[in-house]
Every structure is written in C-alpha cells, then in structure tokens.
C-alpha cells in the first residue's frame, strides 16, 4: 500500500500541493515534505508541546494530527507568513529579551502557544499563562522567564493596539 494521495495544505498563507501517504502526521509532512523544521519533534505523543502549530487558530500537537485531516484548514507554524507577522515577531522578541530561550528546543512550540493564548485572551493573568503552557515542557528555564516573557509580550502588544 504505497498509495500517494494528493493533498493541498495551506501553511502560513501559502498553498502547498503535495503527494503524501495517508498515514503521515502533519508534523512529518511539515518537517520532511515541506522542509519546515521550525516545528520540532520530541515526545511524539502530545506531552511536550514542541510540535505545536495552529490549525484554524487553535493550537494542536502536530504529532497527533494526520496531515490528510488538515486539508482545507489554515495551518500556522513558527516560520510565520513570508511577509512577516507583527504579533508573532513581538512574542519572539519578548522571549529572546526576557531570557525565556535557553536551549531553544521548546521555544517554537511555546511561542505558538503564546500566540494562541494572546489571541483569545490579550491580558492573561499569571495563572492563565501557566494554564496555557500546560502540555509544554521546558527543562532549562523552570518557566519563570517564559512566564515573564509572555507577560512582556502581552503588555507590549496591548500598548501597540492603543497607539
């Protein structure tokens, strides 16, 4: 059963027509077929959050999602839109400046989760931030600087909006 299936995926606003095997996860197709390696693979079972992407604006584990089921949906990854995304970039800047990045392996997933969080809840409390990070492991930071970075991104984005 080697049957390739033609699939059309909309990733970061760009349409990709690819022939894939139906048993490929979205993570495998992003990394191996489309060469988008910013989304990481680690635990393979939805526990670590390194493979988080947005599907129609909702954050999901790409390792638990069949690529074939992501057809017709808007997929967003850490690479972002080619023309640049101010919100994503602000989150990335806050992570870098606040010391939230150490080894950086969890960072893309954390940044994506933050984008989803701030989309739903632009001014989250500390508890809400921590809740939003459940399902994301970071072994380096102990999360303190990650929480601080998300607070920083939220307040900077709020100031941007006021302007």
């Amino acid at each position: 059963m080697n049957d390739l299936v033609d699939v059309s995926l909309q990733v970061n606003g760009v349409r990709y027509d690819v022939a894939i095997r139906p048993w490929r996860t979205l993570l495998e197709v992003l990394r191996e077929t489309l060469g988008m390696t910013g989304t990481k693979r680690s635990c393979g079972e939805g526990q670590c959050g390194t493979c988080s992407v947005l599907i129609d604006g909702e954050v999901v584990n790409a390792c638990l999602y069949l690529a074939i089921e992501a057809q017709g949906k808007e997929i967003e990854t850490i690479e972002g839109r080619p023309e640049g995304e101010p919100v994503l970039q602000q989150i990335q800047r806050s992570f870098a400046e606040k010391g939230a990045v150490q080894c950086g392996f969890c960072t893309p997933g954390m940044v994506i989760a933050t984008k989803a969080l701030l989309g739903d809840n632009p001014q989250p409390s500390e508890d809400e931030i921590r809740e939003a990070l459940v399902g994301h492991l970071c072994r380096c930071t102990g999360y303190v600087q990650i929480v601080e970075a998300i607070q920083d991104a939220a307040s900077r984005l709020a100031r941007e909006r006021l302007r």
Partner: peptide, 9 residues
C-alpha cells in the same frame, strides 16, 4: 484533562 493542545483535538 490535558492542556490546550490536547483539548483542541
């Protein structure tokens, strides 16, 4: 149950 990622799926 789970975190945001799992609850979205």
């Amino acid at each position: 149950i789970g975190g945001p990622e799992l609850r979205n799926i």
